[in-house]
Design a protein around this nucleic acid. Sequence first.
DNA 1: CGTGGTATTCGGCTATACCGAACAATATTC
DNA 2: GAATATTGTTCGGTATAGCCGAATACCACG
Lengths: 288, 288
Amino acid sequence: MALPNTYRDDETRYRLQSVERALDTLELLGAAGPDGVTLTELTERLSVSKSTAFALLQTLITRGYVADSGSRLSRRYRLGMALAKLGDAAEEQSPLIGLATPVLRSVTAATGLTTRLVLPEGPYAVVAARVDAPGTVRFASYLGKREYPHCTSAGKALLTALPAERARALAVEAGLPVRTSRTITDPDALLRDLEVSAARGYAIDDEEDSEGVFCVGAAIYDRTGECVAAISGTGLKLNRPTWRLDELGVAIREAADQITTALGGPPFAERAGSRTPGSEQDTERQDG
Amino acid sequence: MALPNTYRDDETRYRLQSVERALDTLELLGAAGPDGVTLTELTERLSVSKSTAFALLQTLITRGYVADSGSRLSRRYRLGMALAKLGDAAEEQSPLIGLATPVLRSVTAATGLTTRLVLPEGPYAVVAARVDAPGTVRFASYLGKREYPHCTSAGKALLTALPAERARALAVEAGLPVRTSRTITDPDALLRDLEVSAARGYAIDDEEDSEGVFCVGAAIYDRTGECVAAISGTGLKLNRPTWRLDELGVAIREAADQITTALGGPPFAERAGSRTPGSEQDTERQDG
DNA sequence: CGTGGTATTCGGCTATACCGAACAATATTC
DNA sequence: GAATATTGTTCGGTATAGCCGAATACCACG
């Protein structure tokens, strides 16, 4: 190496190369679907030598974090059960997730909706926990999925907690791509929608993100009054044509309130009317 | 210098030390509960230097696998959300778990029981997936929990798939400790119970493992006719005094059948009467 | 029976991960 | 309020652990 730089980049100081590669391996396998990945595939995607990839896999396999299937030749590797175990423990250790999951279960049992807990990450909302409704063929709703702020109920719910200016900035940062014919793509229209949602205590996505799919979402606040998360309930219109979005919205709002109060935050009733100032835009009649 | 044994133990060949330590760290944090662990605690439990433990944590933290809470000094570390994400992916990738989870959800929704998928591990049954019933204050039912074969419905269900001698041997190996006043501690009595359970298609644990708690379980078979897992449903007698164990048992049996047939295995009706296959069954190729 | 694709094994080189010790920052004690 | 105890963080030297490249073993086609 020509570079005599004995000191490492500040970003990578105190970070162990082989551990990072092991994590890369796991994440790669996780994104790879049930068919798994082959050793040579891994080799090139990690840009390491075959023997290195092999050693990584050996280590992870003997500990149960990676499972190998397929016989001898053209073996395929996928994530192992030890990870499911750790993931479970991680969920319980996260105060928010541990608190929210039982509530989500109740809502799902009562309403038949698939429920989720999402956290803000930049302008997006990422799924942190979920309780799938029975019979669901499983939405494309894996943990860690990033959802748009402008066309999902959870994303909107997060925005309702912010001053109008900030909400607009975030939505614009994420972009407002068209997802269905009903997607709100105009920032001003979105802000009006948020106004209504905030007053109502829950946000609605009525086939704005995906055809035939609706959801309702509500924000969660901690003791400092900061919005830290949101929950949402999702349903398919096909399954049951006569959902009552207003009733479901209230159910979600109350569930969110339950979590909020558990965190010591202000419930909906206390927040009512005190929508974050920002610009007090005149409300124009919204036509469809 | 005395060059010590350049060749490593066969057990540890091709295994990366730092990766193993990282995994040790995660497992340690996972077992530590929501309060987490402090750096010095970790240092001594891993028997590594403080700086090493620090580097491990840094790596895991920047990748989101460990979260730190508590301010500056006396910081506490717990598992991070990246693990929940991977664990979720691992569940979907496991063919058995991915298959069983939707079924478990249906059973839970229909019956109100907390349902589990368990796998055999030596003489024990370890929990591989679970769907908690709403309102459950959460049993001590974390993923990876080992359950006794003699006093849990899932454990018994696994035993029903084995020849009597083997079932007895396993139960004895695990021991038959007293758990409640109703625990079966006599191997012969257990075998009689298994006989009945096999004929019925499901096993019952009526407060044999824990006071006030019952469960029903049934075995799952793959295409080779081997029992590979079992599912169980658990309920609290306190909550609802009038459970119908027979109905619940049938529900569990049918759910197990559903998974079994999905795997290409023999459902209950076909197994009836043929307890203890014991004899040699031809290996049937699955060409085409 | 070769050919091309895999997974393993080997041995050497050096970058890497380890340690010990000093440093900094916060509590706790007097 | 200074002294002490206990924790997290930084640093440099060192040898070991991890990386690579090449050679080998294995299997499935043609």
